[in-house]
Design a protein around this nucleic acid. Structure first.
Length: 584
DNA sequence: TAGAATCGCCAC
DNA sequence: AAACGTGGCGATTCTA
């Protein structure tokens, strides 16, 4: 495809171009960079496209001051900037030009929303252009060297990528509209600058503390491993040259299963769920599980995390995938900051640097509140309005006894139900989880649904409509379309569970993303920045001197985000000021 | 031998 | 078989 482009080599052209761009309702935006990491790579080209022309600006030639007429356009809400994976461009613009990319239409996020969970769809610019414009792009120049003299071919490529964004947006906006996804899309697009800023900022890890922890864990694991080799080797058939039993690989489920059989413990598999039932009679099982835990933590959260520390910033900059799941949850990788074990030893390694504090804030029982609101369940809403402990309230409602008389075990059962039911749990699952018989579990669920009849009705309907309509939606209108083989009963049961959970988990994502944007906006200009985001928890790093003010801002904006989607239920946010990632 | 599939487990 | 939902990821084992 030939794109009409103009390579800008003189700063005196900027006022004319800026005027032309400002007059557009929508422009295309793309960048080419010398690498993928904004901290160690440079911004080479900035491409801004009107329907007629792609303007290609060589950023190596101009200072931010010279570029300022164009930067104002990028920062303003209008014109709308169409970009594919705008987070990437936003990070480079923020790092190298000190500006926020606002007024985004992101064709990558739009593609994910329209695909509505279809795992077969790819979302790179090439497959998206093919799907929506029937255009075959080649991306061979994407990873070419953008730091030297640029070839005609590279400039063509750069201009073309920016040029196709406008027709692409036309097609996708119509699709979003037709699928009632414009509200969700707006929510996602507005969240991009907040996530870009969070990634760019990264989190601070206390390396010495982390190394210490890894050392301790290694010693502990090796001790348990030695002990296990001795016990499990007792029945070994194979001896090595020194007459000692051949060591078994404790990380191999197959070898562990065999070794257990040799000492008289027959098991179907070696999953925790299976083994934990045998803990009582067999001390070796407890040791095995202990080894698993240590080994898992060391391989996933050991020295390897340190490799992700950025040489330029000394911090961890995880990759946040904004639509990581069909329910809209954000996922992280490289490293996976959302899966750091929730123990003080681990979390205390993530610390505020000198002179700074962390605000650790999370929603209190947000999914149950969403359920109460969506189901409009009188009793559950009343429980939340009363401000009493939810699980005690639930137990009290179910058993018909006063709040004050609820025993700890009654509260635990109620808690199991509250958490389990938003995941579509059945009686078997509950029985296993809280350790009661199937009969008792059935009775508990019956009582639960009697106490919360609105919830019972809503959950039933959510499950049925998922099977009937093959889709589920959240409060913002986010869509997940399901495939279902009609004859497959197991699949149908699974779909009923997803149908119950998806609107709740997805609405939680809606709320969270709205809160992130509100908070990021309010923190602009203050010495405070969101540094981590874990489904219902935000971590903000700020100057110690303003920590109390920031804590209140965080609380306020998180509540404000939730209120937009939950008109019927009060929302609570627990926020603490801490030196480390702890809910102290 | 590289990549896929599986098991297992971390988070919310 | 599966057994409450969504992921990421590491180690082992299978497969071409």
């Amino acid at each position: 495809m030939d794109t009409n482009y103009e390579l800008i080599t003189a700063a005196d052209k900027f006022p004319r171009i800026a005027a032309e761009l400002r007059a557009q309702p929508v422009i295309g935006l793309d960048t080419e960079t010398t690498g993928l990491d904004p901290h160690t790579s440079r911004l080479r080209l900035l491409q801004l496209a009107t329907p007629q022309t792609s303007y290609v600006i060589d950023c190596f030639r101009f200072s931010p001051e010279q570029l300022s007429p164009l930067l104002e356009i990028i920062t303003a809400a209008q014109p709308v900037k169409v970009a594919h994976n705008a987070k990437f461009d936003a990070k480079f613009l923020m790092k190298h030009l000190g500006i926020r990319l606002n007024g985004i239409f992101d064709t990558y996020l739009a593609s994910l929303l329209i695909s509505a969970g279809n795992e077969n769809h790819r979302h790179g610019l090439a497959p998206v252009a093919s799907r929506y414009l029937d255009l075959q792009l080649d991306k061979e120049q994407q990873l070419s060297n953008w730091s030297g003299e640029l070839s005609r071919h590279q400039l063509d490529y750069a201009a073309r990528d920016a040029g196709i964004l406008l027709p692409l947006r036309d097609k996708m906006a119509a699709r979003l509209d037709g699928m009632d996804l414009l509200v969700t899309a707006g929510l996602e697009f507005e969240c991009v600058p907040a996530i870009a800023a969070m990634e760019l900022a990264g989190v601070h890890l206390d390396v010495a503390r982390w190394r210490d922890l890894v050392r301790q864990m290694t010693v502990a694991r090796d001790a348990v491993a030695d002990e296990l080799q001795e016990v499990l080797g007792a029945g070994a058939a194979q001896m090595n040259l020194f007459g000692a039993p051949e060591p078994i690989n404790l990380d191999s489920p197959a070898q562990v299963k065999e070794a257990l059989a040799r000492i008289g413990i027959e098991v179907e598999d070696t999953r925790e769920w299976t083994l934990s039932k045998l803990v009582d009679g067999h001390p070796v099982i407890a040791r095995l599980l202990e080894h698993r835990g240590l080994s898992k933590n060391l391989s996933s959260f050991g020295e390897n995390i340190l490799e992700f520390i950025n040489p330029a910033t000394g911090r961890l900059h995880a990759d946040f995938r904004q639509i990581g799941t069909p329910t809209g949850r954000i996922t992280t990788s490289s490293p996976s900051l959302q899966q750091i074990p929730h123990t003080p030893e681990y979390r205390s390694c993530f610390r505020a640097p000198q002179g700074r504090k962390l605000i650790v804030a999370d929603y209190s029982q947000i999914e149950m509140r969403i359920l109460a609101d969506m189901a409009r369940d009188e009793a559950l809403l009343t429980a939340f309005h009363s401000g009493a402990d939810l699980h005690r309230s639930t137990a009290s409602q179910m058993l018909g006894i006063p709040l004050a008389d609820i025993s700890p075990s009654q509260r635990e059962s109620a808690k199991g139900l509250n958490y389990g039911l938003v995941y579509g749990m059945g009686a078997e699952g509950l029985a296993g989880r809280i350790g009661v018989s199937l009969k008792e579990a059935e009775m508990l669920i019956e009582r639960y649904f009697k106490a919360y009849s609105g919830v019972a009705h809503w959950l039933r309907e959510a499950g049925e409509s998922a099977v009937r309509e093959r889709e589920a939606r959240t409060a913002s209108g986010r869509l997940w379309r399901f495939s279902l083989d009609p004859g497959d009963r197991t699949q149908q049961a699974a779909l009923r569970r997803v149908g119950k959970n998806a609107p709740i988990q997805g609405t939680s994502s809606d709320i969270f993303k709205r809160a992130m944007r509100l908070l990021d906006d309010t923190l602009l200009g203050l010495d405070a920045q969101i540094v981590n985001s874990i489904h219902d928890e935000l971590v903000v790093e700020c100057n110690s001197a303003i920590a109390e003010e920031i804590r209140e801002i965080v609380r306020f904006e998180m509540v404000a985000g939730a209120k937009e989607f939950l008109p019927r239920v009060p929302v609570e946010v627990e926020a603490v000021i801490s030196d480390a990632w702890l809910k102290k």
